[in-house]
């Protein structure tokens, strides 16, 4: 039980950041759906191909869980995580 508390505590302390390659992103929105903290949103602007690419709308909320990277079909997401 203590172990679980520790994991939860560590997760709460983690700060994350997501870098989306906006040139490759096709704006499918699966990362936005997979994000547990609503960090990601689709941009109002479009990239060269006309897609509303994904970006970190609320960088302070990111916990670096990498769910967005896991579901990204175009492998255009890199995730960083550091202890807060």
């Amino acid at each position: 039980m203590r172990n679980i508390d520790k994991i939860v505590n560590d997760m709460a302390k983690a700060r994350g950041a997501v870098v989306v390659d906006s040139v490759i992103c096709k704006g499918c929105g699966l990362c936005v759906e997979a994000c547990p903290t609503n960090t990601l949103q689709l941009a109002a602007e479009v990239n060269d191909k006309g897609y509303n690419y994904s970006y970190m709308a609320a960088p302070e909320l990111c916990i670096g869980c990498a769910n967005c990277g896991a579901v990204c079909p175009d492998s255009c997401i890199a995730v960083y995580r550091a202890k807060a």
């Binding site: 997401i77 960083y80 995580r81």
Partner: peptide, 12 residues
Amino acid sequence: PIIAPENLIYAK
């Protein structure tokens, strides 16, 4: 500052 090579946990 989080975006640094040592903090990278997921990439292509």
